[in-house]
Design a protein around this nucleic acid. Structure first.
Lengths: 246, 246
DNA sequence: GGAGCCCTTTGATCCACATCAATACCATTC
DNA sequence: GAATGGTATTGATGTGGATCAAAGGGCTCC
């Protein structure tokens, strides 16, 4: 490969700039002042594009960086030797992937793109270094890790104590809330994952997920057309969660 | 209350000393050099005794400190408005409680002592401050948070994809491993929690837990006498987990 | 050391979700 | 625009664990 031109060109590999990113309120830069965001920019490495169905990392891979989702979405899953697998989460823009790798210096789950996506690579040792200097960054990073723990507890509650329709209602309300936080409609959105993936996440079989969708539709709670969801009765879905006759 | 004596007395409130603590290999001081452990000692506040069944903190309480368990054990749980609850974890000596509170500055679960216990109170802002100065402490703290996330993923796998006996086998093997790490017998131990609490953690009813114990006993895998457990066939339990006919 | 209560075990029955199965639908790709 | 293969829906049947019920055992607290 030869570079004939001496004129400076914009490489496709544009340097990431947190300061320019419209996701910064959701992501690592939250709470930093402009000068601090610039410092973070120094640490954030190249962006990386991941095609649909491709792995960002795999269980067992060495851990070197965490990843902020700039575009697209992902799922994480854990696979047992006997082939059973469990989706442990779905991640959207502004959310951080890879925190599982810190503990053993190896990733303990797989991260797979649900659509063509792009992430910012944040080398972890450099992040730790900077967060020793920048208190607000340190604090925001700790909050992000803690949020992940709280989220996981919510999923444990869901898997351990809820019935199928409650699980799906909780899932839809959660998706709605996250789309809203990103400036999209709270009531109408496109799911990036299959029924099978939703089922794995919710501890249900895909048929059960499908039936629950149909039931919601019959009851006028949502309008479902494949992966396109329109929530018609948010309070109704919430009622399903709280008024449990048990 | 009056202090008549002018002679220095050992208060019951002895200052915690990580450097003297035999749990330091499991806890926050892991990987620190002696001088750094001394610095950590400065940050760790008083110890606090919690009687059996009492709360260390409650969901909704303001977050100010994390807690390292010095003696005894705890459970954490989440409670829904309708009364349903889910045990999200059991914690033993050397483990850290309270990480859930960082994200919103309020605790999002309850921490309850399973027996008379004692914790070291670690004011969080001081911990963050010190971990900005001490790289090894920063790193160990991040590992502890990450480990919690990985553990939660394991529980999600268990709740989402395993059958009752597999869940109990996984639970027993996990307990065994943690007792071992604390210098106790891998094969004989005393459970601090009830069948109901185990059930809640594993997403099962107490009757199902009891029946699974009975079945393990019939099959010669364990000897169960109430809360006293003797594991007779560790490989057998492991086989139950991996060789799933599905 | 006895009373009371919580915890545990075990049995009988029920039901929510899994499993098995068939068909329909949609998005690619050639 | 037909072929292909993954995805979704819906129905029929099966089953693991929940629920209901009762009795026994072991702590805890007087």
């Amino acid at each position: 490969m030869q570079m004939k031109s001496v004129v400076p060109v914009m490489t496709t590999e544009t340097k990431t700039a947190c300061s320019q990113c419209n996701l910064r309120e959701l992501c690592l830069p939250f709470g930093l002042d402009p000068r601090e965001v610039d410092q973070l920019d120094e640490v954030v490495g190249a962006r990386r594009k991941i095609k649909r169905q491709q792995h960002l990392y795999r269980s067992g891979d060495g851990f070197e960086a965490i990843y902020a989702i700039r575009a697209g979405s992902f799922k994480t899953d854990v696979i047992l030797e006997d082939g059973r697998d469990q989706v442990t989460g779905f991640q959207m823009t502004g959310e951080v992937l890879g925190l599982d790798g810190i503990s053993t210096e190896r990733h303990s789950c797989n991260a797979i793109a649900l659509e063509d996506s792009e992430v910012c690579v944040i080398p972890f040792s450099r992040l730790e270094e900077l967060s020793r200097q920048v208190e607000s960054l340190q604090h925001q990073f700790h909050k992000i890790m803690s949020r992940e723990i709280v989220r996981d507890h919510g999923v444990m509650m869901l898997l351990g104590s809820m019935r199928a329709e409650e699980r799906l209602a909780a899932f839809l309300l959660n998706m709605s809330q996250r789309f809203t936080a990103r400036g999209f409609s709270p009531s109408e959105f496109h799911l990036r994952m299959t029924r099978d993936e939703i089922g794995s996440y919710l501890g249900l079989k895909l048929e059960t997920v499908s039936r629950a969708f149909s039931r919601f539709q019959e009851e006028g709670l949502v309008a479902v057309q494949q992966k396109h969801i329109r929530i018609l009765d948010t309070p109704g879905l919430k009622r399903l969660l709280n008024h449990h006759a048990a």
